[in-house]
Amino acid sequence: METALVSNIQKFSLDDGPGIRTTVFFKGCNLSCAWCHNPECISRFPTLQFIADACTGCRHCQSLCPQGVHLFKGKEHLLQRQLCEACGACCQGCLSDALVLNGKHYTRKQLLSIIMQDQDYYQDTGGGVTVSGGEPMLQADFIAGLLASCKKEGISTAVDTAGNVPFSEYEKVLPWTDFFLYDIKAFSRDIHRKYTGCDNSRIQANLRQLKEHGATVYVRIPVIPGVNDSMEEQTHIADFLKQVQPDKIELLPYHSYGTGKYSSFGLPYRLTGLQPPPQETMENILTLFLAWKLPAVIS
């Protein structure tokens, strides 16, 4: 039976498309964005989360772990993550919920059942389901089947994507997707490569092709201070998007809400101390996009 690995299912989401939505966050991403606020979705495998503040030091996990991951030095709880095989034994025995295994396999039927629980809210508010991540398009075959099932039930569908997969993967989901939430993080290839780990040629080409295929696309631009917030870089983005003509552009000011999760997954955060962009910067960028007659808003 085909399954997909899911990090989290967020009900009553208001940030992933219009109306009240259920957002399914799939694990696995092929970018490494320095500002990522979903580090739990980066790995394509189940990952152990350790919430240090919740740990009582009972050491029960140490006795349960068959790999010797957990070490205690006085009151300090240390993890040898290189030994972890994500078996979940320590999580099941953690009395304080300080240990969580992030990532669970679902069938399409199981996910559809959860999504349909809030069908009345979708109808009343113009909402639906959004598949996100990570990069959900790394599991495109599964996504296509799930979205097809949702459409048969009259549920609106959206795909939140960074665009870095072959276009043939998008062709699998196009018939079942009402709109795409599509990230454009930078126009400059050097900036994109430095802060995401990859070139953006395919991302730009895929956006063009989606619009050529008649897809509804809402472009999202994270505005990151010191990365892509210069007027020069934003002008390049505006010029590119003027050619593509997306249906909507959302300017997303950087926030640090997800930074606390990095240490719980044993990951470093590259933009420590970075502050959100000033409101003046966001308004200047918005003015620029509106001057190019682009349908932009600050979200």
Rank of each mutant, 00 (worst) to 15 (best):
S188L: 00
E212L: 11
P268Y: 15
L274N: 07
Q49P: 07
H236V: 00
T130H: 05
C41L: 11
T157V: 10
E40L: 05
L210M: 09
T272G: 06
Q243P: 06
T259H: 12
I184H: 01
Y121T: 12
Q92V: 11
Q245W: 12
I184V: 14
S263P: 06
I203E: 00
E283C: 03
I143P: 06
K248W: 12
Q62S: 01
L83V: 07
H236Y: 10
A148H: 14
G57T: 08
I115K: 04
D120A: 12
L78D: 13
R270F: 13
L271A: 04
D229T: 08
A34V: 11
D16A: 01
G128V: 11
G134D: 02
Q139H: 14
C36Y: 11
L241H: 05
C94P: 10
S188I: 07
S156F: 06
L174C: 07
L112S: 04
G134C: 11
L111S: 06
C65Q: 15
Q245V: 15
Y195H: 15
E283G: 01
A98G: 13
E2D: 13
K172N: 02
L286S: 08
I298Q: 03
G88I: 03
D15R: 15
S43I: 06
Q80P: 03
F240A: 00
R208K: 12
P222F: 10
Q82T: 13
S32W: 10
I20Y: 14
D239Y: 13
T235L: 02
F142W: 09
P39L: 07
A238L: 07
C41K: 02
C84T: 00
G103R: 08
L181R: 03
H70V: 02
